[in-house]
């Protein structure tokens, strides 16, 4: 009771006066503190958001990179699957290899592969894709090998025209094309005719696709025709190839 009386009395004047005096200050102070606290809170929050944002950006980049890797791997596996499926049907023991480099000079046409003697790759093995012949191995070291392309001027494959069975020798011109030489002037050859390996010569098995005829020049005074062949494989865009280690069946 006593307390209540005292409380009521003081409430009448002092508390009201102090309240009246301090309330704007308190209000201002409180709002300032709240503002500052809000600023700090939001600032700190923004710092956290910024950090979170950075982390998420990194995460997105990592995932994009991972996704890219998986897409590349998927495409690689798909290409290898198509490549190997073709050769499995042909009963050949093969090994796939990646193209890791090209000739260091302008003049010769050669590829470096990532498989060497560690994978039983040796000289004179045939290198192909499902589209046809790429070339043959001319040198093999432990983990890499050199492949001479069929378009190199030193490459020569004993060949026949698929339809007419006319024989010839397909040599590289050094300019991205091949020529089939020693085809008799009276032999019937048409544009688009396919040229395949004849199996003679001991390197290329019989029946491998080399290319198709794109140009024929016949001169009356010559003994042979000049026949230009475009390789069936796009040799400038090779990523994976197949090396035939052993040919168990007929082609």
């Amino acid at each position: 009771m006593t307390v209540n009386i005292r409380y009521e009395k003081s409430n009448l004047f002092f508390e009201s006066a102090v309240g009246l005096f301090f309330s704007p200050i308190q209000s201002l102070f409180t709002s300032s503190v709240n503002s500052i606290s809000d600023v700090f809170g939001h600032y700190l929050f923004l710092v956290r958001t910024s950090k979170e944002n950075e982390r998420l950006i990194l995460e997105v980049e990592r995932l994009l990179n991972k996704n890219n890797e998986l897409v590349e791997k998927n495409k690689y596996l798909e290409r290898v699957r198509i490549l190997t499926a073709y050769f499995k049907k042909k009963e050949k023991i093969i090994i796939t290899a990646k193209v890791i480099g090209r000739d260091a000079t302008q003049w010769s046409k050669m590829l470096f592969l990532d498989k060497g003697t560690n994978d039983n790759v040796k000289k004179n093995l045939v290198v192909m894709t499902d589209a046809g012949v790429v070339g043959h191995v001319i040198h093999s070291s432990l983990d890499s090998s050199k492949v001479l392309l069929i378009t190199d001027s030193r490459s020569a494959i004993d060949s026949v025209f698929q339809n007419t069975r006319e024989p010839g020798v397909t040599v590289g011109t050094g300019e991205g094309m091949c020529e089939t030489k020693f085809v008799a002037i009276d032999a019937v050859v048409k544009l688009g005719d396919k040229v395949v390996s004849s199996g003679l010569g001991g390197v290329f098995p019989k029946g491998l696709m080399i290319g198709s005829v794109v140009d024929i020049v016949k001169k009356k005074q010559d003994l042979f025709q000049n026949i230009t062949i475009t390789p069936s494989v796009n040799l400038s865009h090779l990523e994976e190839v197949v090396i035939i280690l052993e040919d168990k069946g007929d082609t």
Binding site: D103, A104, S108, M110
Partner: peptide
Amino acid sequence: IQDCLSGS
């Protein structure tokens, strides 16, 4: 080195 890295 270039010889070693070429087919010539």
